[in-house]
Amino acid sequence: MTALLEVTGVGKRFGGFVALDGINLSVPAGERIGLIGPNGSGKSTLVNCICGTLTNEVGQVTFDGKHLNGLSAHARTHAGLARSFQLPRPFASMSVADNLRVPLMFTVNARPGTHLSAAELDARCAELLTLVALDHKAHRFPRDLTQVEMRKLELARAMAADPKLLIADEAMAGLSNSEVTDIVALLIRLNERGITIILIEHIMRAVMSFSQRLVVLVSGKKIADGKPEDVIREPEVERAYLGQ
C-alpha cells in the first residue's frame, strides 16, 4: 500500500540559510505521528512546504496519489490536507460558528458531488462545536475566547474541512496540564475517526502519549524516525535535543 503523504527530498532555503535539507517522510493512512525538534529546526517550514504556504525549491510532496508541487494552499486543503496554525489565526470579524462555516463552504462544498444545504451547514457547525466543547460559545467572537478555547477553535476549523490528514502545529503551547490532556484526548478521538494526524509539539508528555511514531528534525535534517520509545533513546537525539 502506498502512503497517504509522501515527502521526498524536500529542501528549502531562505537566502543563504538552509531551512530544510533533503527531507524524506512517508506517512501511511491512519497513523499518529509526532514531529519534534528544537526551535528553528525547520518543523514549521516543513509544514508550510507540505501545506503550500511556502514553495519548496527541490523535492516532491505527494498526497493521496497526487503531486502537490505548484498547487496553491487552498487547492491542497481541497485535496484533504488541513492544518492548524502555531499561533491561532481565527477570522476575527466572524463569530465562532461562522469561522467553521468558512471551510465548510469553501472546501467541503467545493468538492465535486457534495453540496450541503443551509440546514446541513448549520448541523455540521453544531456537530464540530460539540466535538471540541465550544457549543456554548457559537455566537461569540474570537476575542472573547480563552487560550485553550482558541486552540480548540483552530483545530475545529481545520477539522471542518473534512481532511484525510490533519497537521496540528503546536496546538498546546502555553496550555495547562489538564488542558494538554484535554487536547491530546481530542486528537486521539479524531484519529479514531480515521484521520491521519501529524502533531508538532514541544511538550514531551503530550508527544509521547499521542504518537505511534516519532520523527526528529535538527537544523533542517531528519535525524531520527521510528517508535517513540526507541527514538528518544538514540544518542544523537538526546545530544541534539533532549540533552540540553
Binding site: C51, G52, T53, S72, A73, H74, A75, T77, H78, A82, R83, F85, R89, P90, F91, A92, S93, M94, D98, R101, V102, P103, M105, F106, T107, A110, R157, A158, A160, A161
Partner: peptide, 24 residues
Amino acid sequence: QLGYGFATIRDDEQAAEASGVPTL
C-alpha cells in the same frame, strides 16, 4: 458566500487559504 470569502481575506489571508478559500 462571496462576502464571507472577502471577509476572510481581510481578516487573515493565510488562514483563509488554509480553510480552502481561493484568495487570488
